[in-house]
Write a protein that binds this DNA or RNA. Structure first.
Length: 789
DNA sequence: TCTTCATTTCTTTTT
DNA sequence: GAAATGAAGA
């Protein structure tokens, strides 16, 4: 717990400031200062693409290199696990193995680690489990039903988001109950729900996402000696994406950098003490950009960054405005858009790389039409030699991905959707996970209820209720009832099934802390017969579910390979804190489709910003929220600034949302981009779609259709405008259709054309077709809606 | 207790 | 258009 100053500098390599020149190479003056500044607190206002990761990693490397800090004294907090891993890698590449031992992780991972170590202090067991949003809602649903509160308008979702908000403000049930007017029956009802929810979590030895942060703050506040362990240890705290911190996270940071009182300083410390005999607070570096704050709905408080200087007196602020990512055209668009947000510190991104390509705009007639445009453009990027890894398509909502997927499948464009069909949220995976959770944490009733009758073993709601009643009577977790189910007077068959389940869980529990997660899972799947039941049900969907279970098994195996010492609890924690952005892989030759939120922090050569329509961006739901329109604008801004070289902005004049097709209007934000930055390949059809008449004016001929804007016929000029939703690429199967160059075919969307080439093998065979009207396309033969002529 | 079928409700973004 | 309910029948 000591550190040395100014010793063992490597001769000849250090600058006057003690930092290796190589660390400062290629940095602009502001970046240099951000790397070398030393003081109690530093705010780096880092515009999009201004090299903040570079600055942050070099700053850490500098601290290590000059021996100002040991690796163990550094705590760096990022937004996602992937960002953390990346930062660790980059520091490693700068200073080598000296990087081992740093804490670089997300808020949630760091706090979980602390809470597990200090579980006893906070009155929990080390094996606590983490409830995700779905678990939280399942529990609340039960509570609301128990209380009959659903009849007075309480919903799991509503209660969950309110509880989450309160926890993010560090208001626990006791504080809340004190503050509320209990004469209001509505409020009193919510207090009761919150109360039961809190105690159910306690009894289940579980924490929800928000607890993880809040409980750490409470722990530090209640036990200053525990807090002091970490305050003495972490001398340099660095926080990325500071604009997205909520109040609880802000409070946590304050705890981390709090000075240690003299009575919590060990007598034998070799650390520098302040005049009172305490240890001064750790130095704090935060990096953020209030223009990229997009998590207000999760409690992110923009004031954390805007008031940093007030919160941390004598702090230094460094502004990074030079952009190293995008072309000037893209930055001009971004600057123009974001300047419409009032109440913000002026900031203007600039670059020296030049104007670059114009932004390409496209207005389709439907989501499918838009998706086809995206596919066509990707195809031409590909034939121009671009890599699909460098292409991303952004959407506002997850439901927008469907038409894109359909068209991409048909066009044989490989794609991936990070966090899309969330693997760990599938029912069968949650079932298997619930088994593992029960094994690791037998107190978790929710997990047990989930698997009680999975696979079917004849334990219905009635039986479950009887068991629950018994558990309540004797005051134990549900799990303990399993073993003596005989006392419940149930049928022999059911009783045997219950006891059998108990035995399986107990047996697995005996090795829970020692066996590899993989072995525990395999054992459970074998003994419960869950996997076999799905495999042999004859249902195609069950078949897919069985395969998902197999995938989970191989993931546990993978986990042990990467992490040989990893326990079951470690695996469960990893899964619970796994995020969409963590699974982004930019090496596998596919384009990425993701939400704008997931896109934050990433960059691509070519970016497609889709669905730029009213009610989608800005989203309808945000319109009534205070600050909602500004937040949506920031979201748009984040999307624009992800692009390095090419930006495509697309929308549709009609969009299907929950079965119905609705008229869609161009987003108000579109007008905020100067018209001369956008070249419209196809603008909207007839009237009513040109707010302000600026943004949607096509310049020159609309290349795609060969019409200039004024000649655009009122009827859509495309071969097909009506996209029968029944024709999904997935349903169709052309089986053994054989095509070869020269064949003529008819496509339901593109009309007739001639095959120019066929490539690929088996089901992956792709035909390249020159259509008479629609141009050249690549089609996956097996599923394309085509017939041979 | 399980299965099937009809009805209903909901859709923003996520650690 | 899906997922989650609810009701009715096996």
């Amino acid at each position: 717990m000591t550190y040395l100053l100014d010793s063992f500098e490597q001769p000849g390599r250090a600058t006057a400031g003690g930092i290796d020149n190589a660390l400062l190479d290629g940095l602009n003056p502001q970046q240099r200062e951000a790397v070398t500044y030393r003081g109690q607190s530093l705010l780096i206002v880092a515009g999009a693409g201004s090299g903040k990761t570079s600055v942050l990693t070099r700053r850490i490397a500098g601290l290590l290199q000059t021996r100002e800090a040991w690796p163990s004294q550094i705590l760096a907090i990022t937004f996602t696990n992937k960002a953390a891993a990346e930062m660790r890698e980059r520091v490693k590449s700068l200073v080598g193995d000296a990087a081992e031992g740093m804490w670089i992780s997300t808020f949630h991972s760091a706090c979980t680690r602390i809470l597990r170590r200090q579980a006893e202090s906070m009155g929990m067991k080390q094996s606590f489990t983490i409830y995700d949003t779905a678990d939280q809602r399942a529990l609340l649903k039960r509570i609301i039903k128990e209380l009959g509160a659903d009849t007075v308008g309480f919903t799991p979702g509503g209660a969950s988001s309110r509880i989450s908000k309160l926890k993010n403000e560090l208001t626990d049930i006791d504080a809340f109950a004190r503050s509320v007017n209990m004469d209001d029956p509505k409020e009193a009802g919510f207090v009761e729900i919150f109360k039961r929810y809190t105690s159910a979590l306690r009894r289940a030895n579980a924490l929800d996402f928000d607890d993880i942060i809040a409980e750490t703050v409470y722990l530090f506040r209640a036990f200053p000696d525990v807090a002091a362990l970490y305050q003495r240890r972490f001398r340099h705290v660095l926080v990325d994406e500071y604009q997205d911190t909520n109040h609880a996270q802000y409070a946590l940071i304050r705890e981390f950098v709090r000075a240690v009182a003299p009575h919590n300083v060990p007598a034998d410390t070799r650390m520098q003490l302040d005049p009172s005999g305490g240890i001064p607070g750790a130095s704090l570096t935060v990096v953020g950009d209030s223009d990229q704050s997009i998590y207000a709905f999760r409690g992110a408080d923009i004031r954390n960054i805007t008031e940093f200087e007030r919160d941390f007196p004598n702090s230094k602020v460094i502004l990074l405005e030079q952009n190293y990512r995008s072309t000037q055209n893209i930055l001009d668009a971004a600057n123009a858009v974001i300047s419409n947000n009032f109440d913000r510190k002026a900031k203007n991104l600039f670059t020296v790389v030049g104007a670059g390509e114009k932004i390409i705009g496209f207005t389709g007639y439907s989501g499918h039409d838009e998706a086809q445009f995206v596919a066509d453009e990707i195809e031409s990027l590909r034939s121009a030699g671009g890599s699909l890894n460098d292409v991303a398509i952004f959407v506002r909502t997850n439901s927008q991905t469907r038409p894109l997927e359909e068209i991409f499948i048909r066009s044989a464009i490989p794609y991936r959707i990070p966090g899309g069909t969330k693997f760990y949220e599938r029912a069968e995976i949650k079932d298997a996970m619930a088994y593992l959770i029960q094994v690791a944490n037998p107190d978790d009733d929710l997990a047990l209820r989930r698997i009680m009758n999975v696979p079917k073993r004849g334990i219905g709601p009635a039986t479950e209720a009887a068991m629950q009643a018994h558990a309540n009577r004797i005051g134990t977790p549900l799990r303990e009832v399993l073993a003596d189910a005989g006392q419940l007077g149930l049928g022999p068959k059911v009783t045997a099934a219950i006891v059998e389940l108990g035995t399986i869980l107990d047996d697995a529990g005996r090795v829970a802390t020692t066996a590899a997660p993989h072995d525990i899972l395999t054992d459970i799947l074998n003994r419960t017969g869950y996997h076999k039941a799905l495999k042999s049900s004859g249902d195609a969907q069950d078949e897919a579910r069985a395969e998902n279970l197999e995938e989970l098994v191989s993931q546990t195996k993978e986990f042990t390979t990467v992490n040989p010492e990893g326990s079951l609890i470690d695996f469960l924690t990893g899964v619970a804190l796994f995020a969409a952005a963590d699974e982004i892989d930019d090496e596998d030759g596919s384009v990425s489709i993701m939400t704008l939120h997931t896109a934050k922090g990433l960059e691509y050569d070519a970016v497609f910003l889709t669905g730029v329509e009213e009610d989608l961006l800005p989203h309808r739901m945000s319109a009534n929220e205070p600050g909602g329109l500004q937040e949506e604008r920031r979201l748009f801004y984040v999307g624009i600034t992800r692009a390095r070289k090419r930006l495509y902005i697309s929308l549709a004049t009609s969009r299907a949302s929950f079965g119905e097709v609705n008229v869609a209007m161009p987003s108000r934000y579109l007008q905020e981009i100067p018209a001369d930055l956008i070249e419209w390949k196809q603008s909207g059809g007839s009237g009513g779609f040109r707010p302000g008449g600026r943004a949607l004016n096509a310049r020159g001929p609309a290349m795609r259709s060969g019409y200039s804007r004024d000649e655009l016929p009122p009827a859509p000029p495309r071969v097909k405008t009506e996209w029968t939703s029944a024709v999904t690429g997935l349903v169709r199967d052309n089986g053994d259709m054989t095509l070869e160059a020269g064949d003529r075919i008819r496509h339901t969307d593109f009309g007739e054309g001639r095959v120019t080439a066929v490539t690929g093998e088996g089901t992956k065979r792709v035909a390249e077709v020159q259509f008479d009207i629609a141009g050249r396309k690549r089609l996956l033969i097996k599923i394309a809606p085509i017939e041979k002529l």
